[in-house]
Design a protein around this nucleic acid. Structure first.
Lengths: 361, 361
DNA sequence: TCTGGCACTCTGCCTTCCAGAGTGCCAAGA
DNA sequence: TCTTGGCACTCTGGAAGGCAGAGTGCCAGA
């Protein structure tokens, strides 16, 4: 059997044993990986053994580092663009870095103050979201994405009915997150103000304070409480309301910082175009944020992203919300070669403050 | 005096006389310019005299065309990147082309049907704007910009007051263009439902149907009609309303097609970055559209744009609206080297249909 | 297990070279 | 007076070659 294997394979095997892959990843090897990631993020250039020992005092010679690098490459954490070039971290390498080698870098006190100050000026839900997304883009110097508070996690604050014309009613839904949805309802016949008033008060009695998805259940029986001739109108209004409540695709998203994509570097159009295309598709963005874990920060690196166009980018996202439960998500999209600790710190801090702002208003 | 002038100057003078710049621009010379613009837009490469006579049957030899080109260059309509290269139109050349040499290219019937069909599906003002901007980006394969119907041109359809808490009132303003603005009002004291009802009906009596800028005038005296103890509340609500009405900066804009920027070509990052930056600034975009003439289409070519980052782009914009007067603007941003007739045709067609849709709803 | 040394291999950059495209000008023809 | 063919000239873009620098893998010795 042995003899059937190629010389290369035998060589690789020998090396593996020699380098003791069995004791999985000793300390120094991890330190080397960390150093490679840090240097590469800084310089954008493949990093070699000599430069590495010069900048980080690892206490060993370049030759030793070279051995470690060879082992790391065997294990798929780093990769060589071509023989006799330095090494570049792979997606797997970044993954290890994020999971075990990096600490989220907390924002400095002045930075926190600045965030707070910037967000406090907002007057409006739109304004909060707009400010948040710009802030995030500026802090991370990358593309920022913020989702509006989702309807499905919100509760009803108020429902308003406004007669615009004899048979036209405007339905306005206000949620506890400050979001306002409106729909024009064409009624089957003229609607009297008294009916409207009654409907309004019954709707609010049944719905206020409840999470949106529960509302249809509590209002189902409503038409029965009205005179037969008014029931068609009530039904139409209810139907429109339910539709509005259910409209998951009305999830909205705001984007900022696309100009930062131009800092990606070299092989430009190839990298940037698919990303811009992805960013234009609300659906893609929503799915992207949707994949965020409900608790804690999610980092998706390179090919871990489902969407192909984003295979050379990483996405750092997190839920935010008033109080403990998250009502929506926000995040940052950048090159896999990004400053993970810093980005994660910024994302976390911004999410926290937005949550507070929303809780206050 | 004459002897003080350089040889170059004398030569240029001589040529000018020789070529009879006095009889301003004869037919063939214009045809040459038109052909240069068309070819350059198609190929993105400097166009030479030989290629020109081959593709357009101008009925003259390359040598003749060369003479015409020299004249056109003297007059600043075209320009040579370097000796012995073909010619490229200048901003001035494009200007002449747009003003005198090009016809707006009407959309074909199927295209018109597609536009109509695509826009008809909209349910909502947001939806109309979103669909419009995407459509425009797709049709022109460039960056599209659509402004929401401006508040200052709209009239009030309805004002609603909703008591959310004893001292908190939500003010909702609905305009005839379907736009809805809401503001949270902190009242100085508890607000009774009867006061609220009276205020609501008086507000609507005074404001409905009026253009937003006129509203403050008609409501000025309102506090006087209430009991002294309610006046502070009325004043606060009014103040918030006026603020909302006046908030010109609440002009909103929607954008699509940024991915098309990647088709710009060669000197990529340099061209695209300032454009992306400009597009991030709502203010810049608003000013850009603001410069659009009230009637007819506006084309701003290259350096005609005030904003420096857009000096290598052209902007085609037009007002749209229900009926005859325009309520907002929309447009397209692309390289100066764009298909002007086609772009103008698309912009005009889309604007027309959006206007119709708005008039219907 | 680490380290210094050595031979080897790539890339990136610079220079040189050459074909191709395009021009401007001139003198002859319509 | 305008148009045209001819000609010498210029400039770019790409190919080819050469070279320094950085980096590697491996080996033998501490």
């Amino acid at each position: 059997m042995y003899s059937e294997r190629s010389a290369d394979e035998r060589k690789a095997d020998a090396r593996r044993l020699d380098r003791r892959e069995i004791r999985p990843l000793d300390e120094r090897r991890l330190a080397v990986l960390r150093a490679i990631v840090q240097d590469y993020v800084g310089t954008e250039e493949p990093v070699g053994s000599k430069a590495l020992v010069e900048r980080h005092n690892l206490g060993v010679s370049p030759a030793t580092v070279r051995n470690d690098m060879a082992a790391l490459e065997d294990d798929g954490f780093i990769h060589q663009p071509h023989t006799s070039a330095g090494r570049i971290p792979t997606d797997k390498g970044y993954r290890l870095f994020v999971d075990r080698l990096a600490e989220v870098k907390p924002m400095s006190a002045p930075e926190r103050r600045a965030i707070r100050h910037f967000l406090d000026g907002a007057v409006d839900l739109d304004d909060v979201v707009a400010r948040t997304v710009r802030l995030l883009a500026q802090l991370t110097r990358q593309v920022a994405v913020v989702q509006y508070p989702s309807l499905s996690r919100s509760t009803v604050r108020h429902i308003e009915l406004v007669a615009l014309a004899p048979a036209k009613v405007m339905l306005v839904l206000i949620t506890n997150t400050g979001r306002v949805e409106q729909r024009l309802v064409d009624c089957p016949g003229t609607v009297g103000e008294s009916v409207l008033a009654e409907l309004r008060s019954r709707l609010n009695a049944g719905a206020v304070g409840r999470p949106l998805p529960e509302v249809p259940g509590t209002l189902e029986e409503l038409p029965g409480a009205f005179e037969p001739e008014d029931r068609p109108t009530v039904s139409v209004v209810l139907a429109t309301l339910f539709e509005t409540l259910a409209e998951q695709n009305e999830e909205r998203i705001m984007l900022a910082g696309t100009a930062n994509l131009t800092r990606f570097g070299h092989d430009f159009p190839l990298t940037i175009q698919p990303v811009l295309e992805a960013l234009e598709e609300q659906v893609v963005l929503l799915r992207l944020l949707g994949e965020t874990a409900d608790a804690g920060m999610t980092v998706r690196i390179g090919h871990e992203n489902e969407y192909e166009g984003l295979n050379s980018t990483s996405v750092v996202s997190v839920g935010y919300g008033s109080g403990d439960q998250s009502v929506a998500k926000l995040g940052v999209i950048g090159p896999t070669r990004m400053d993970y600790p810093g980005t994660m710190g910024a994302v976390r801090a911004v999410a926290r403050y937005v949550g507070q702002i929303m809780a206050e208003s």
